[in-house]
Design a binder for these strands. Structure first.
Length: 879
DNA sequence: CGATCCCGCCACATT
DNA sequence: AATGTGGCGGGATCG
């Protein structure tokens, strides 16, 4: 990567490139004209000619996945050389690294790294889930392919599926238009309806007996589905976009298959479809004969589709155990009731909210998207929504406020999310066999769901969260969950929030980032060892905590000391890739001025748009880094400390202790923990607000935690687009919290003895808890907006960083201070500082002035270890 | 050894 | 004819 960066960094000399390239090309391939020029050409020099191309190449190279075998390597080198002729050092460097690294890595690239799913994720990361209506994103297949470092063929696989869901549409040869998920719900709805017609019956039976059904299937299917219907489907697929060429397409089986596959899920009550069944159904539709080979092929295709859908967060793989045994299957985790949910939700409640602009009505589910710009305002809504007004007492329950519109949008997303969560929960409950990922913690992937220990425990939490989310908007159309403990609020669907549990949605970009789990490839997980370690440990703990909560207290978790992974050598970790890291700390970034971030500082903060962008970015480690750079990254911070501050690296030694130390050193670093979905929690991301008094958090086997950490679980998919955050009310032990509330909030209690002081990482529940008790309301006039949000300081910071003006931001800090104190652990003055946004970022030493901080960064970059460098680079990454 | 599914040949569609 | 698309299935990996 370093190399990569350098190359990038290095001035490009396109001019030189040409010659070089040529030579190189010749060397590699005599001429590119072989029969299939395309391939040859591409491979050897995809786009050597254009400077950009080179960049891309480099980039691709950078990404682990990319590493192709020698080919690429060769290619790159030559290119690099050519470019870098200017900077010999760099070249050499690169060369060296390349060779060595590649050598390792080359072989390294396991199949997984090249998986379609991963590729798809990268692909998706490049585009906003909810692009502004105004902006039109066109996708060049060639470009993407080169950037992602794959053959175009693979891109087709992805695009075809996306197209089936109308996330993209083909505009012209080699050109696709990105639509994002705005219409996804509608598309799904349509599919569902279509599916009902076609498969409805079947599915019904289906659930009960697959086999029987299977037989019937074929027959019925045919019967029920006359060609015409089939046709319908097809057509339907193209309806909206119908961009140009759509029609003529022949049967693009992949597209059709994809739609049908999705339909099966939507029609299925269980939302679980096994591959074999799907394959059979699909085959039948196509043909009667089910020869084995055909079946096999079908299954293969389904895998392809499933990978993409998985990347989209619509399904997840599970195993279904049946009479026969365990079968691979996929479970729909996307939105389920469109009518009610995404779209509907709004629609339903709309009454309550008179959103002027939004017509959420019928087809407008997308409005959310549509209104894109408004997103910006989201924060506004935020304000409004959560009228923290002094006391967050109730977050606004009123749907009507004008700003709600925006909120609505924002909310709508949230709602969806909530819906998803809820659904998930419900499903889980229903199917004991299937456990939600949450419950599954222990087993990441596939563990059979049978495991699921205490579903209930989980539920409460989730529910609580979800509803809470909804509440703010008032949108929650969903019926209250019975089990909701504390969530009195949700019951009505009203936004009444319990004091204890304030949930907030915010649009802060920072949150966003946190949420988005896209991580991708390399997230800088490879970060500095120490940092990683810390994070990891934190993660582990967090995970543990979760597990504990869910399961109840498990001893393992309990022991804070249990380092879980921490112990692992940094190196190892580094090697580990993103995949491994379940959690990552994310520091809220300021809305800052990331390049992407918009520019409209004036307008607001990071608007949704920005957020999205961020998300996308987030997906890219680089982006994150960039963000982080600007503001702070917890992890980085640690690192930074190392270098810049010179902390003892030793001390940094991985381990919680180390963390704690740091914490101590730095009063606050982290603010949120983000758990990546990858691991067991595939679908949910947890956010913890950190900032709190460190002491507060404790992992203890016993559940009694000194503090309960508020966490929010968000479906990863949802995350992508939503910047939701729940500020769980934190129940401080002190403050009387209803039991339910606790559970609701996720009763995660971490007692991290070790971490205690530091733990910034974890959770920063801002001491919000107390706040309730003592409302900080008026402290700042501005505060009002924020209310209960405990947004962790982070948010505040983020906001603040962006704008001090924003009331939102302002308030937090204050509250925090107070809160913190009350919160169990006494904070050091430093810790208090968090109040200042900037303070957070800074290391203790640097706290004083931001400038210094930056400076440090600069130094870092220079001095920084390769790792650091990497980060930085990434940040700079081109996008 | 079955589940996955990458890879890329090659046919068909477009330009 | 040159390219763009994408069906398809061998066979490598993974678990």
């Amino acid at each position: 990567e370093n190399i990569f960066d350098r190359s990038r960094m290095a001035p490009k000399t396109p001019i030189k490139n040409e010659p070089v390239d040529l030579s190189k090309q010749k060397g590699c391939t005599p001429e590119r004209s072989p029969i299939t020029p395309v391939k040859l050409v591409d491979r050897p020099q995809p786009d050597p000619w254009t400077p950009t191309a080179n960049l891309k190449m480099l980039v691709s190279a950078a990404s682990p996945d990319m590493r192709d075998r020698e080919k690429k390597k060769e290619l790159f080198r030559p290119i690099e050389n050519s470019e870098q002729s200017d900077t010999p050092d760099l070249l050499q460097y690169d060369m060296v690294d390349d060779s060595t690294v590649d050598e390792f890595e080359k072989q390294r690239p396991s199949r997984k790294q090249k998986s379609l799913g991963l590729l798809c994720q990268k692909f998706l990361a490049r585009y906003p889930s909810y692009p502004l209506s105004t902006e039109k994103t066109t996708i060049s297949l060639d470009e993407v392919a080169s950037i992602l470092g794959v053959e175009r063929r693979r891109i087709y696989d992805i695009v075809n599926v996306l197209e089936s869901l109308h996330l993209v549409s083909r505009v012209a040869k080699n050109q696709y238009c990105w639509h994002g998920r705005h219409n996804l719900s509608q598309t799904l709805k349509t599919l569902q309806e279509a599916g009902e017609l076609q498969y409805g019956e079947l599915m019904t039976c289906f659930q009960h007996k697959e086999q029987d059904l299977e037989y019937k299937f074929g027959e019925r299917k045919k019967e029920t589905m006359p060609d015409s219907q089939d046709k319908k489907l097809l057509d339907f697929s193209e309806p909206d976009c119908t961009s140009a060429s759509a029609n003529s397409r022949k049967d693009k089986s992949l597209r059709i298959m994809s739609q049908k596959f999705v339909m099966l899920f939507l029609v299925s009550k269980t939302k679980i479809v096994t591959l074999d069944i799907a394959a059979k159904i699909l085959i039948e539709e196509t043909q009667d004969t089910v020869d084995h080979s055909k079946f096999k092929t079908k299954v293969r295709r389904l895998y392809d589709i499933a990978n993409v859908l998985t990347s989209l967060g619509l399904i997840k793989k599970v195993h279904v155990t049946e009479e026969r045994g365990r079968k691979p299957a996929f479970k729909w985790i996307g939105p389920v009731e469109f009518p009610g949910k995404t779209d509907e939700l709004r629609g339903h409640s709309p009454a309550s909210d008179p959103l002027p602009g939004t017509q959420r009505g019928a087809r407008a589910p997308y409005q959310i998207c549509a209104s894109g710009k408004q997103r910006f305002t989201r924060h506004a809504s935020f304000n409004g929504a959560q009228p923290c007004e002094g006391t967050r007492r109730k977050v606004s329950s009123e749907p009507n406020s004008p700003r709600q519109e925006r909120q609505d949008e924002y909310c709508s997303k949230m709602v969806n999310l909530a819906a998803v969560c809820r659904q998930k929960i419900e499903e889980d409950t229903r199917n004991p066999s299937i456990i939600s990922p949450l419950s599954i913690l222990p087993v990441p992937g596939d563990s059979d769901f049978s495991v699921n220990p205490l579903p209930q425990a989980v539920f409460p939490v989730v529910q609580g969260d979800v509803p809470s989310l909804l509440l703010p908007n008032g949108i929650s159309s969903q019926p209250p969950h019975p089990s909701m403990p504390a969530a009195s609020k949700t019951e009505d669907g009203k936004p009444t929030l319990l004091p204890s549990q304030p949930f907030l949605c915010f649009p802060s970009s920072s949150l966003f980032m946190l949420c988005s789990g896209l991580q991708e490839n390399n997230l800088r997980e490879t970060l500095p060892t120490a940092g990683d370690m810390g994070n990891r440990s934190a993660e582990a703990q967090a995970a543990v905590a979760l597990a504990v909560c869910q399961k109840r207290s498990s001893r393992k978790c309990a022991s804070p000391s249990a380092p879980v992974d921490d112990e692992e050598p940094a190196a190892k970790k580094q090697t580990m890739e993103q995949s491994d890291v379940p959690l990552s700390l994310v520091v809220p970034k300021k809305p800052f001025e990331s390049p992407k971030a918009e520019s409209t500082p004036g307008s607001g903060y990071a608007s949704a748009v920005d957020l999205e962008a961020l998300q996308l970015d987030i997906a890219n480690p680089a982006a994150l880094e960039a963000a982080n750079k600007k503001s702070t990254k917890p992890v980085d911070s640690q690192e930074q400390k190392k270098w810049s501050q010179n902390k003892d690296p030793d001390e940094l030694s991985p381990g919680k202790e180390h963390i704690s130390k740091e914490n101590s050193n730095q009063p606050f670093l982290p603010h949120y923990l983000y758990v990546q979905p990858t691991a067991g929690l595939s679908n949910f991301n947890f956010l913890f607000s950190a900032n709190q008094a460190p002491g507060a958090i404790s992992l203890t086997a016993s559940q009694l935690p000194s503090l309960s950490v508020p966490c929010v679980m968000v479906p990863s998919a949802a995350l992508a687009s939503f910047p939701l955050v729940c500020s769980p009310a934190i129940t401080s032990p002190l403050s009387p919290v209803p039991d339910g509330s606790l559970s609701a909030t996720t009763s995660l209690n971490f007692s991290m003895s070790s971490l205690a002081s530091a733990t910034p990482v974890f959770i920063g529940t801002t001491a919000a808890v107390t706040p309730k008790v003592s409302p900080m309301p008026s402290v700042d006039p501005q505060q009002p907006a924020h209310p209960a949000l405990h947004l962790s300081p982070v948010l505040a910071r983020s906001c603040g960083a962006v704008k001090l003006d924003s009331p939102m931001c302002m308030g937090h800090p204050v509250t925090l201070l107070k809160l913190q104190q009350p919160s169990s652990t006494p904070l050091t003055p430093k810790s208090i500082r968090p109040a200042c946004h900037e303070a957070f970022f800074k290391t203790p030493g640097s706290l004083g002035d931001p400038v210094a901080w930056k400076k440090n960064e600069g130094n870092q970059t220079r001095n920084a270890s390769s790792v650091q460098r990497r980060l930085e680079i990434s940040s700079t990454s081109p996008d």
